[in-house]
Amino acid sequence: MERKIRVLVAKPGLDGHDRGAKVIARALRDAGMEVIYTGLRQTPEQIVSAAVQEDVDVVAMSILSGAHNHLFPRVMDLLREKGVDDVLVIGGGVIPDDDIPGLKAAGIAGVFTPGTPTTETIEFIKNNLKRGD
């Protein structure tokens, strides 16, 4: 059977603006992926546990509050602690360009700022999966 791409879409932190997260969730579904949506106010611990149990290929997070420099790397640390190194982690939101190199160094493979078309995110996921068969 063909390999389905499974994506965890999560909103870490406290901001409640989930328009972007929901639009991307729908777009990924329409691109044939299986999206596990976890809702608002997720702690990094919750996100990582869910990613492991759901055995996802991708974790996609969105933050609009400016807490990305704290929360994104924290998710990466926890994944590493659990020995997970084959999950593609991407982030989106209001993220100043200056912050992107730091986030990439922390292991966030793709950072998408406002105005990124969903098709670009979809392509990025398809081309950068860390595992396949």
């Binding site: 932190g13 406290l14 901001d15 106010r41 702690t43 509050s65 400016g66 807490a67 420099n69 704290h70 929360l71 924290r74």
Partner: peptide, 22 residues
């Protein structure tokens, strides 16, 4: 900021990274 809007003090675990941000 968001912790204030959601009724958490700045030293609450969920406030980490959010204090004074928005």
């Amino acid at each position: 900021d968001l912790p204030t809007q959601i009724g958490y003090d700045s030293d609450h675990a969920l406030s980490q990274g959010e204090v004074g941000k928005v």
